[in-house]
Amino acid sequence: MEIHKYEKIWFAAALVMVVLFISSVAYGAVGAGIQMVDDEGGEINPNEIGEHPKFEGFQDVAGTEASVTQVNESHYEAQIQANHPNFFPGEITIPEGSTVTFYITAGDVIHSYDIVGTNVNTMVIPGQIAEITAEFEEPKEYGVICTEYCGELHHEMEGKVNVVSQEEWDENYTDDLITIDERGGDN
């Protein structure tokens, strides 16, 4: 077979480029430690969400005031259920400088949980728990949206993550805070 010299050079350059792209993805995963949402979260029965150990004590759909659970000094857990067209709870509040592990699942159809402007972004699939951990350094109010079409009111589905200053946190939010031991989770 006859292959032109320029074509060989081009092919080699293309191959190098492909290898570089793959290395950059590998570096992001291993070097920079960007973890992908994966199968860590495990499965859940979408009709019995409250009975799953991760969601124990979670008051689903109807009126949830529960926000976050404290695991230790700066680590919190948040359980979230997506049901068209709402997130439960719709709003969570955490102190600045905290690490939050989200456990997110759906009670009806496929949704997503996307904290806009961050890389906290995961699909939410009935039967699956999406587990994602993120650090929130500065006080800021983040918008949360569902980015997967989930029904006729999909566009109304939004929530909020409120990162407040330490002072505000100590003043307003620590009274009702439950710890992981009180909740009796499996951690």
Binding site: F11, A14, L15, M17, V18, F21, I22, V25, A26, A29, Q35, M36, V37, D38, D39, G41, E43, S112, N121, T122, M123, V124, I125, G127, Q128, I129, A130, E131
Partner: peptide, 24 residues
Amino acid sequence: QYLDPGIAEGFKFLSASNTMFLLL
């Protein structure tokens, strides 16, 4: 399905590599 729960990261990476080879 990079952002899907329930699929291990390794298989996502494998798909990413194959996809890059499709550039060829």
